[in-house]
Write a protein that binds this DNA or RNA. Structure first.
Lengths: 109, 109
DNA sequence: CATACTAGTCTGTAATGCAAACTAGTCTAT
DNA sequence: ATAGACTAGTTTGCATTACAGACTAGTATG
């Protein structure tokens, strides 16, 4: 039961992938935030090539999940939204990344 | 054209992830099919812990994408559905896997 | 003044994932 | 013989999602 059981175990992890992180658009957003620590809406908009509406809704979802901190302020009368990962967001992304690495290491192909 | 433009960051690859493969349930199904080469509906049902309806619809989607071959026959009066990866399915899974490995190698965390 | 730009949010919609209900037939026990 | 349980799936209905375009609100410029 050695090799087969181990394989089955790795694959089973696929089923409880964190879908908040798993969605490509959000994975991209989180990746940027993970690197830069803090970014504004327009930076993410340009980097991700998402539409505003789409980016906005993904950020809202990430905020609701407690992964992203949304901080609104003004820079010389111009509104600015500053995004950053929360501790939970950082943890979730890290765990997702670790899990996926493990899955793909044991996956065929 | 400058060579600078060509430095396609790994993160950019996230945006065109193959969503047919990316969906966890289907990733799981494809993983099993990739290993065993051929499996029946009930085998997949048990291995994946999906509900019948859910498994059925995912298989239909995979079939429609040309990734999975669905072959129905009878084994002593009992209907059986045999699933196997097509060449395209095998290729798609392999490419997805390679791409994800690359992404996660360059990802922080 | 108006036109363009910055910075987003809101709304409508088509697609998706999911499970329960349903279909169709077989096997078993009474 | 027929009720009940099981096999093997498909269909249906629903709630959620992702997405883009329309819209709001304010600023800078000619």
């Amino acid at each position: 039961m050695s090799a087969k059981k181990k394989e089955a175990h790795a694959l089973q992890k696929i089923v409880d992938i964190n879908r908040v992180v798993h969605e490509p658009a959000r994975l991209l957003i989180l990746s940027y935030l993970y690197v830069v620590e803090s970014a504004d809406f327009l930076f993410l908009l340009r980097q991700t090539n998402l539409t505003k509406g789409n980016l906005s809704s993904h950020l809202m979802k990430l905020e609701k999940a407690g992964y992203v901190n949304v901080e609104k302020n003004f820079v010389q009368k111009i509104p600015r939204t500053l995004l950053s990962l929360t501790k939970e967001g950082r943890k979730a992304f890290h765990e997702y990344s670790q899990r996926m690495k493990k899955i793909f290491k044991e996956l065929p192909g």
